[in-house]
Amino acid sequence: MSTESKEILVGESSQAKPEKKTIVLMASDGDEFVVDVDDITNQSEMIRNLISDMGGTDGLQVPLLNVTAPVLAKLLELFNVSNKNDDDEEVTQKVKELMEAELNMMIDVLGAANYIEATSFFDLSCKVLADKFKGMSVEEVREFLNIECDFTEEELQQIHAENAWAFD
């Protein structure tokens, strides 16, 4: 794909820059997001495969049934940060900030990234969450995520006894 666009650039005068190719992503609530093909295929394996299966990007609309508009907007915003920076530092920082400010949104963004197979962004975000969790006690994680403990005291004791290496 990149060699093709290069040829156009060489053939035309520099003023007639070819228009960037775009596709449309549709959020679950019907909102449409016009995205640059290179920007999105750089991140999403699912969309990369879809474009190659469809044999092109002309008029391509991708419905993302599991992703709401606010979540998709936030995900695309973070992709932007990631595409603009060669290292992961900046985008890691943004994901961290999102986690601290709006945990629910961060979790939804993570789910959406997984859904569209944005593997490197997904891994990076998992690492951010993992770094947060590993410094917390089980009780703190339960409180942080609003999860109720459904183990009995006996069950917990048994798990601790069977896996002493992890609980010393």
Binding site: D31, E32, V34, P70, A73
Partner: peptide
């Protein structure tokens, strides 16, 4: 939601 690289046509 309107971001530099992404144009959004909001209908909802």
């Amino acid at each position: 939601f309107i971001h530099i690289n992404y144009m959004i046509s909001s209908n909802k």
